[in-house]
Design a protein around this nucleic acid. Sequence first.
DNA 1: CACCAGGCCGTGC
DNA 2: GCACGGCATGGT
Length: 245
Amino acid sequence: MNENIREILLGGQSFSWRDDGGGTYSAVLNDKIYRIRGLEDAAKDPFLADYFDLSYDYDKAAREIADKDDILREAVTSTGVIRLLKQDHWTATISFILSQNNNIKRITGLYDRLSKRYGHEIEEGRFTFPTPDEMKGATEEELRGLGTGFRAPFILDAIEKAPLLDTLDTLSFDEAMARLQTIKGIGPKVASCILIFSYQRREGFPMDVWMKKVMKEYYPDKDPSYFHPYEALSQQYLFSWIRNK
DNA sequence: CACCAGGCCGTGC
DNA sequence: GCACGGCATGGT
């Protein structure tokens, strides 16, 4: 089955990628700018090979998920193969704090404004996502001025607690969820997104407004454990499917 | 004008 | 424990 590179890059698990037109996508990652047209390009670069989790067999996972039931089969076949990116912890944390009660387009805009204000320029008009250190002097007024709204104090708390992000790897899923939720503005949905898209915790199952609809309408008597061992991937397929339907 | 977006917090019961 | 209103902003 074909990989859906567009959905992987722009479908809401990362806010780093931009559509440059002509089938090219670019992102500032790892202090560099990367331009790719597909996974073949990612395979040529060690950083991207890891970032795209190329050692994991997503095609096999897609087939097994599709075999689970008719809804998942429809979600997988209509979407194409989805991968889970291995994003930087801090970038993912701020990205999903920005995501609450927000939409993908506006989240991307906020991500860009934070980059322009606190990051550094890699090439004309392209900025790194700022590190916690680079955001150290930020104030609530400044952050609100960039359009973050009620999320401004959450970002400040995350800056304060950024070292916590390096303590999660050895923890169980539940412990990591609990520790992330000690940061203001991080609840179960945001925490599970961070753990999936930055810590490779495939048992996460983010329940946003879209997924609540899916569960109510198609899985009324089920809970996330039904999708084991592909909770996170199944959720991604159902999320893409319902949003594009 | 309303209602919504990859929700969470504080309050009240 | 669960239900509810409020919350910044920009799009439809």
